Simulated assay, not measured.
Amino acid sequence: MNTVRHTAAGQQPAAPPPGSHQAEQAGASSMTLKAVKFLGRYGTLLVLILLVVVFSFLDGSRFLSFTNFQNILLQSTISVVIALGLTVVLVVGEFDLSIGYTASLAGVLTAGLYAGSAGGKLGAIGLVIAVGALVGLVNGLIVTKLGVNALVGTLGIGSVVMGATYIVTAGVPQSLDASGMDLIQVYLGKLGPIPWPIVILFAVAGILWLLLNRTSLGLEWQAVGGNRTAAELSGIRVHRVVIFAFVVCGVLAAAGGVLITANVGSGQIAGGQGYLLSSFAAAFLGSACLRDGEFHVVGTVIGVVTVAVGFNGMAIHGVSTSAQFIFQGLLLIAAVGMSTSARRMVSGRRAGH
């Protein structure tokens, strides 16, 4: 007769003996989890270091020069401003596909309105930022009050904004007039030894970091993104919080459009649309940096710099533009994979799996 051994109540079964098939599987699973956790925290930094090492080896002093690193930061400013706005929306668990169109509209409005006295110029910038806030407000209302999926709703609003851009410009790029050429000094001028765009980059990043991490609104954003139902039960007005996230995103997209015009001296009809993919790539790369798949300000800045380093190094090495966009697309896929795996691992761990 077979003897059946029962495990005492509340007692865990004995661990598989070393060398057994179960022990090998458990060890492999543990190593996989550690690898996913490591990539979820340091994957982007590894990519950045790898890019620097590769391009340093290929191009030496041309890539490693102080001037080139300064150029990388200069090239990153507009992307950082727009991507940080997107980061806020991603933090609350939504998406915004209208940011590129909003930046384009803001750019042409800036070129057309920025003229006259100093007061008139400040008023023009204020109006452009208000337009960006309005786009964000409409996005937020459509997503929260009408219950439209954020991808669909913001894509639809983006199409409307693109139509408005064509109405404003009649399909013709808008150039700054003579009285508005001082706006270009934003990109040519310096604060001491530091170019103004780099000052703007760190100022915007610093303000948004404080907003997200040191204010009640920022903590509410993170709570809503972490668990919307729990946030609502705790008394957070979820719809208001989400709407305000979209407004901040629209404001920063418009600010990015102003910087685009300051950079090139004119408002281009599609000037901001190229920043959509790069912003998503930067935000998802940033979520695989220092945290377990969470969107955050420092990560997004590092993500933007990572993409910029890749583009800069390939340009110096003479790689074609098509290859640069292939690189960006592959980088986005890898970033989403790393951040998604890290989030799943953390969710499973919290659920006790």
Rank of each mutant, 00 (worst) to 15 (best):
G156P: 05
M181A: 15
V199I: 15
V138Y: 02
F244W: 11
F202H: 10
P195T: 08
L146K: 09
Y187G: 11
P173N: 09
K145Y: 10
S216R: 12
P197H: 10
V224Q: 03
V199S: 09
L188F: 09
L141N: 06
A133P: 05
G235M: 09
V241G: 02
G147C: 06
V161P: 04
G180T: 01
G153L: 13
H239R: 13
A130T: 11
L219D: 01
L210A: 14
V172R: 13
A124T: 03
V199T: 07
V186K: 07
M181S: 14
I243H: 08
V186W: 05
L211M: 12
M181H: 12
V238Y: 05
A245S: 08
W196G: 04
I157Q: 13
L217Y: 09
G235T: 03
N213Y: 12
V160N: 13
V238R: 04
N149F: 12
G158F: 12
L233P: 06
D182R: 09
A245E: 02
G156S: 13
G171D: 01
L176W: 02
V248A: 07
G218N: 01
S234I: 06
R237P: 00
I207A: 15
P173L: 04
G126T: 09
G180D: 00
A223D: 00
R214G: 07
V224N: 03
H239A: 15
A205H: 03
L208E: 01
L212R: 07
A203G: 13
I129Y: 05
L155R: 09
P193I: 15
N227C: 04
L127F: 14
V160Y: 13
G218A: 03
V247S: 00
N139H: 11
A230N: 03
I198C: 04
S216K: 11
G136I: 04
T229V: 13
L252Q: 00
G132D: 01
G156I: 06
L219M: 11
T215R: 07
G250K: 02
I236K: 07
